[in-house]
Write a protein that binds this DNA or RNA. Structure first.
Length: 222
DNA sequence: CTAATGATGCACT
DNA sequence: GTGCATCATTAGC
């Protein structure tokens, strides 16, 4: 008898192997993983279906381009597994997962999630209003998913790998067998030659993805 | 298509 | 310090 057979594999927290990778390697590996948000109202579970890689210091699309370390970007320089949240356009929050080692600014933007159960969807809808009545409207977009999961800057700097954290990341599905598309990142014209690089990843068949790419180029594991 | 809405970064005093 | 352009977006026309 193997003791491991009894372990609740699906609920195991993600470990440092994934968090210590460069963002570009971590971004596709985060697809299919489960995000768990604990609030006073209860626990919401969802799976990640769209990500974007930002960093390190050479990426002109990254807030930490050139090693820019400010009050806002400081968390990007922390150890992988840290939560980075910023406010955009004065009204929406964006959730990022910091990766790589301390002092090396990498982050993966979470752009879309999918509720795991009808109960999870119900919770999320209650925070979304009329726009949340379609999958994409519910949590297909970085600002939308933060609203659906009640995520704001209070979570900035916390870690995803603690059992008592209000936001955790669990193993979920292993992404190697999923149908993954890669495409250029969304809405970063200022990134110049980094703008067209295919650093966005999403699950081809998820209706929760924010923007479908014309090409839908399959992602090949290297 | 575009207004909304405020933190942020940087140029300049 | 002050001023101001910018922004990893969204909802509602």
């Amino acid at each position: 008898m193997n003791h491991n057979e009894n372990k609740p594999v699906k609920k195991q927290l993600i470990g440092s192997e994934l968090y210590s990778l460069p963002a570009l390697q971590a971004a596709p590996l985060l697809l299919g993983r489960h995000l768990v948000r604990s609030t006073e109202d209860g626990e919401i579970r969802c799976r990640i279906v769209e990500t974007e890689s930002y960093g390190g210091a050479e990426d002109k699309g990254s807030h930490a381009f050139g090693g820019r370390r400010t009050a806002r970007t400081d968390v990007m320089f922390r150890e992988g597994g840290t939560i980075y949240i910023y406010l955009i356009y004065g009204m929406y929050h964006c959730l990022n997962i910091v990766t790589a080692g301390e002092g090396d600014p990498h982050a993966v933007l979470i752009r879309a999630v999918e509720p795991l159960t009808a109960a999870d969807a119900g919770f999320m809808r209650s925070y979304r209003g009329t726009a949340g009545s379609t999958p994409r409207g519910l949590s297909g977009g970085p600002g939308k998913l933060c609203r659906a999961l009640q995520i704001d800057k209070r979570l900035n700097g916390l870690r995803l790998d603690r059992a008592d954290s209000p936001l955790r990341l669990e193993q979920g599905e292993e992404p190697e067998s999923l149908d993954i598309v890669q495409s250029p990142r969304i809405n970063i014209p200022y990134a110049e030659e980094y703008a067209p690089l295919p650093w966005r990843f999403y699950l081809r068949n998820s209706p929760y993805v924010s923007v479908k790419d014309k090409m839908e180029q399959p992602f090949i594991w290297s």
